[in-house]
């Protein structure tokens, strides 16, 4: 039996009609995705099925219906698929009596490495996450953030090309977050597929603009943030313009068909629209033609967080009425980062 991995298949994660239920509880319902190399953020409220999707991809669960493939292989009970997968589970669970180095080296050895190689790789992985000085201490003495970094180190120690991270930023301080996100970026740049669930949206936005949004076990949006936003015609957008003579600018903008309303603020004005592109053009035109002095131009609804909350509310509403909540789905991206 060959011990060398088959890396011919591109790191991909493909689900088709994937459903998973636990007794009467439906965790995932008819999920179909095709993810390629790069960084994907898996977003959704608690209980939306994020962890279930990651566990299915990691071969810890079997689908109730449909199928999931990692690098073209069914992951459950398939060592050839699992050797290409690294998982950082959400649970803060490690063996407290082992040191950080023993933990990661042991798990590396279970991945097929010889003891000396496993130790070297474990040291390198722990160093990458800033645990060099603490790696000989028992994990039981670690802070929550350090334990999180041990979990991440074990996930990458065998150099997987599909990295599944379940809430990897939980309990981490800003420095740890920076180290974790840098490592994620580095791995994605080397061609890995990184799928991570998180609640820390600003970090997601800094890391990737490709998201999967799960609500009540269904994917309500997937693709690039701007694509999703553009496809959601009903997603209201506000544009804040701070300039001199805001009342005059507001009067001009009210004549534009793409502008739904204008509201004066303490400083400047707020323009509401459902067609952002023509409205931005109209604002620019009005500013130039009217000779206004522009101080700032921002949109509080253009952030990922605003889109997330809008989609979650929308998904929950649709699920309650039995309608398909996935109508806001952008194209499934499989390209590089």
């Amino acid at each position: 039996m060959s011990t060398e991995p088959d890396r011919s298949a591109e790191p991909t994660l493909r689900a088709a009609g994937l459903s998973k239920w636990y007794g009467r509880v439906t965790a995932l319902q008819d999920v179909s995705v095709h993810l390629g190399p790069g960084i994907w953020a898996l977003l959704g409220p608690n209980g939306s099925g994020k962890s279930t999707l990651l566990h299915l991809a990691a071969g810890l669960l079997r689908p109730s219906l449909g199928q999931i493939r990692v690098c073209g292989l069914v992951p459950f009970g398939e060592p050839r698929a699992l050797r290409r997968v690294g998982l950082c589970p959400e649970a803060d669970a490690l063996w407290n009596e082992l040191t950080g180095l023993q933990t990661v080296a042991t798990l590396a050895a279970l991945g097929g490495m010889r003891p000396a190689e496993a130790r070297d790789r474990a040291v390198a992985a722990l160093e990458a996450f800033g645990l060099r000085d603490a790696m000989e201490r028992p994990v039981g003495s670690y802070s929550r953030g350090m334990r999180q970094r041990v979990k991440l180190a074990q996930a990458v120690v065998h150099d997987p090309d599909v990295l599944l991270l379940d809430e990897p930023l939980t309990g981490t301080d800003p420095a740890s977050r920076h180290a974790i996100l840098e490592e994620v970026r580095r791995r994605a740049a080397r061609g890995a597929l990184v799928l991570f669930s998180t609640h820390v949206l600003p970090e997601v936005e800094a890391l990737t603009d490709r998201v999967l949004l799960l609500v009540r076990g269904r994917i309500v949006a997937q693709g690039r943030v701007h694509e999703i936003r553009d496809m959601l015609a009903e997603h209201p957008q506000r544009i804040h313009v701070v300039c001199d003579r805001p009342r005059a600018l507001g009067a001009r903008l009210l004549e534009e068909p793409s502008v739904a309303g204008v509201r004066l603020l303490d400083e400047g004005l707020e323009v509401e629209t459902r067609e952002p592109e023509p409205t931005y053009r109209a604002v620019a035109r009005a500013l130039v033609e009217g000779g206004f002095e522009l101080r700032s131009l921002t949109s509080p609804d253009a952030t990922l967080e605003a889109l997330f909350h809008h989609l979650v509310e929308r998904g929950a509403r649709m699920a309650g009425t039995g309608a398909d909540p996935g109508v806001g789905r952008a194209r499934a991206g499989t390209g590089g980062p």
Partner: peptide, 27 residues
């Protein structure tokens, strides 16, 4: 990316060492 498939004997030995270590360090 150098992960390998663990041969069965290697896998059993690794699990055995892990299990033994846990027993030795446990209450």
């Amino acid at each position: 990316m150098t992960a390998r498939l663990a041969p069965a004997t290697h896998a059993v030995r690794a699990v055995l060492q892990f299990g033994a270590r846990r027993i030795l360090l446990g209450r």
